[in-house]
Amino acid sequence: MDLGEAITITKINTPSGPIYLMIGWQTKSFETYIYHEENVWKGRFSSNRLTGFSRNLQLTESDYFAKLKQCLSSQKQDYIYELKSGFFYWKRILKNSIIIEGFLPVELELSPSISRSDLIEVLLALNRHLSEKLSTYKLKLKNIKTEYSKCLKDTQEFLHLKNGMEKALCNKFLNLLNMKKNEIILDEYKIHKK
């Protein structure tokens, strides 16, 4: 799994103010740190929770987890996020109702300064990873442009050669037609002369 997919950090607005979610994604679960004001909350969403919520929402586990990952990896306008009474909730707004799509218990971290430095280290690592990824894509783009230029040049040379060959072939064909025409005229002249 790519580092950018394995760890996400998202700023989410809640009724009690903005929070930052740092989530370490695993196959069927995740661990999260929630940074709110001066506090840091830690929680774990287990595979048992995944099974229960997916069953309640009548979704397959993989569909629910994909929806969950999408919901918690960016602020969604049709969701309400809340951190209250030791739980973190994500609720979907559907017409005139609100559906609780999931929640997890969270505990207040006793040493938030260490966790805040973890957030900064993770952000720096993600930044380095994304910079390396960008450099790789830039190199690939440069190679594609070089290959494109080479192919374009080859195609133009081929087209020029093809046009030259067609022109030469047409000239030979016209010369042959003119020769045959002259032979026919000469034969007609001989026939009329006799």
Rank of each mutant, 00 (worst) to 15 (best):
M1Q: 05
L3M: 14
G4P: 02
G4E: 15
I7F: 09
T8A: 00
T8R: 02
N13L: 11
T14S: 02
P15F: 10
G17H: 02
G17V: 08
M22I: 04
I23E: 00
Q26I: 09
K28R: 14
S29G: 00
E31Y: 13
T32Q: 07
Y33A: 01
I34C: 10
I34R: 03
H36I: 12
E38T: 07
W41L: 03
W41C: 06
K42L: 06
G43P: 09
R49E: 14
T51E: 05
S54Y: 00
R55W: 11
L57I: 06
L59I: 01
T60I: 05
E61N: 13
E61F: 07
S62V: 09
S62Q: 08
D63W: 01
D63T: 05
K67T: 10
K67H: 03
C71F: 06
C71Y: 06
C71V: 10
L72Q: 00
S73C: 06
S74F: 10
S74L: 09
K76V: 01
Q77M: 04
Q77L: 07
D78V: 03
D78N: 01
I80K: 09
Y81G: 02
Y81I: 07
Y81A: 04
L83Q: 03
S85R: 00
S85T: 06
S85F: 03
F87L: 09
F87V: 09
W90C: 03
W90I: 00
W90R: 03
L94I: 08
N96K: 07
I98G: 05
I98W: 01
I98C: 05
G102H: 02
G102R: 04
L104I: 02
E107Y: 10
L110M: 13
L110V: 13
S111G: 04
S111Y: 11
S111W: 00
P112N: 03
I114A: 06
I114N: 10
S115D: 12
S115K: 15
S117V: 14
L124G: 03
A125R: 12
L126D: 11
L126T: 06
N127C: 01
H129S: 09
L130H: 01
S131V: 05
T136E: 15
T136D: 13
K138I: 11
K140H: 14
L141H: 10
L141G: 08
I144A: 15
Y148M: 02
C151S: 11
L152N: 08
L152M: 02
L152W: 07
L159H: 11
L161F: 04
L161H: 07
L161V: 01
K162V: 01
N163V: 07
M165S: 13
L169Y: 08
L169C: 07
L169A: 11
C170R: 14
C170M: 13
N171C: 02
N171L: 12
K172F: 05
L174N: 12
L174V: 14
N175F: 09
N175G: 12
N178G: 05
E183M: 12
L186C: 13
E188C: 10
E188R: 11
H192R: 12
K193P: 06
K194W: 02
K194R: 11
